[in-house]
C-alpha cells in the first residue's frame, strides 16, 4: 500500500494544473471523483503494473472525468509527467475522454451507458477463467438515465457477477442542471436494490469509508456490488461546488490561483 498510496489532494492539484494548462472544462466532474480514484488506485485495487494480466480492471464509464484518472495513473508512476503534459494536445494519447491506446486504460469511454456492459463482460470472463481479477466501473448518476445501464445491471445480477463493483458518482448534477429537475433517478439506491444488487451507500469524499466499504465486499460469490457514493460536484474548490458552470468552463488566472490555494490548504 505504501508504494501505491495516492492522496486525493494530489489528484485535485493535477486536475487543476492540467485543465488550466490545456484551458478546458469538465473540472467539476473530475473533482467529484478525485477521492474515489485516489482510493481505487491508492490501494483498493490489486494493480501492480498495467502489464499484469490478472490485475483488477477499472472502467471509467463517465469518461468525461478522465483527468482524474490520468492524475491517478501518473501518481502510480504509470504515466510520465511529460505524457501528462500532453493532455488535450495534438497527437496526444490523453484526450478529454480516456483512450485504450494509453497504457493503463483498458477501454475507451466517453459515450455514456456503455461501460457497465463491458465491465460485466470482463467480470463474466474472470468467472469463466476462475481468475481472481475484479472489475470496478465508475458511473455518473446522470449516466443511469441511459437504458443500456439497466440492461447491464439486470445481466450482472442474473449471472451473480460478485466480482463486479459499480460505483455511482452521485453528485446530483448533469449537463443542464440538477438531476432531480432533468430526469430524476431518485431513489438511486432503491433502484439498484430492486435489481438485486448488493447496495452500499457511502460518502464519496471519505477515503477511509470508501476503502472500508470496498474491502467489506464478498467478491467470491453472491450478487454484484454497487457503492452509491454521495459526492459534491466540484468538490474541493468552494466556488466550483454544485455550480453547473464548471461542467463546461475553463478557469481564468485568478480562478486558478484561488482554486490551487484552496486545494493546498485542505
Amino acid at each position: 500500500m505504501a508504494s501505491g498510496s495516492i492522496l486525493a489532494k494530489e489528484v485535485r492539484r493535477i486536475v487543476l494544473e492540467q485543465s488550466k494548462r490545456a484551458n478546458v472544462g469538465h473540472i467539476g466532474s473530475a473533482l467529484s471523483i478525485a477521492d474515489i480514484v485516489a482510493v481505487l488506485y491508492g490501494g483498493a485495487m490489486r494493480i501492480d503494473s498495467p502489464q499484469e494480466k490478472d490485475r483488477d480492471r477499472f472502467i471509467l464509464s463517465k469518461g468525461h472525468a478522465a483527468l482524474s484518472l490520468y492524475a491517478a495513473l501518473h501518481l502510480r508512476g504509470w504515466l510520465s509527467k511529460g505524457d501528462l503534459d500532453t493532455f488535450c494536445g495534438n497527437a496526444s494519447f490523453l484526450g478529454v475522454h480516456p483512450e485504450h491506446t494509453l497504457a493503463g486504460i483498458d477501454f475507451s469511454t466517453g459515450s455514456l451507458g456503455q461501460g457497465l456492459s463491458i465491465g460485466a463482460g470482463v467480470a463474466l470472463a474472470s468467472k469463466l477463467r476462475s481468475s481472481s481479477r475484479r472489475t470496478f466501473v465508475l458511473l455518473s448518476d446522470a449516466e443511469c438515465n441511459e437504458g443500456s445501464c439497466w440492461e447491464a445491471i439486470t445481466f450482472a445480477a442474473h449471472h451473480a457477477l460478485s466480482n463486479l463493483v459499480a460505483i455511482v458518482d452521485l453528485n446530483g448534477q448533469q449537463a443542464f442542471g440538477d438531476t432531480q429537475d432533468v430526469l430524476s433517478m431518485s431513489p438511486m439506491a432503491e433502484r439498484w436494490r430492486a435489481f438485486k444488487w448488493d447496495v452500499h451507500e457511502v460518502d464519496g469524499h471519505d477515503g477511509e469509508a470508501l476503502l472500508e466499504a470496498i474491502e467489506s465486499l464478498d467478491m467470491s460469490s453472491g450478487p454484484p456490488h454497487v457503492l452509491i457514493a454521495r459526492t459534491t460536484f466540484g468538490k474541493g474548490v468552494s466556488y466550483m461546488e454544485r455550480q453547473l458552470k464548471w461542467h463546461y468552463w475553463p478557469m481564468s488566472d485568478i480562478e486558478y490561483d484561488n482554486a490551487r490555494a484552496e486545494v493546498e490548504r485542505a
Binding site: Q114, S117, I118, G119, A120, G121, V122, L124, A152
Partner: peptide
C-alpha cells in the same frame, strides 16, 4: 446493446 458490451469485455 448489453450483448455487444458484454462481448466486448469477453473479447478483451
Amino acid at each position: 446493446q448489453n450483448m455487444l458490451g458484454v462481448a466486448t469485455g469477453l473479447a478483451e
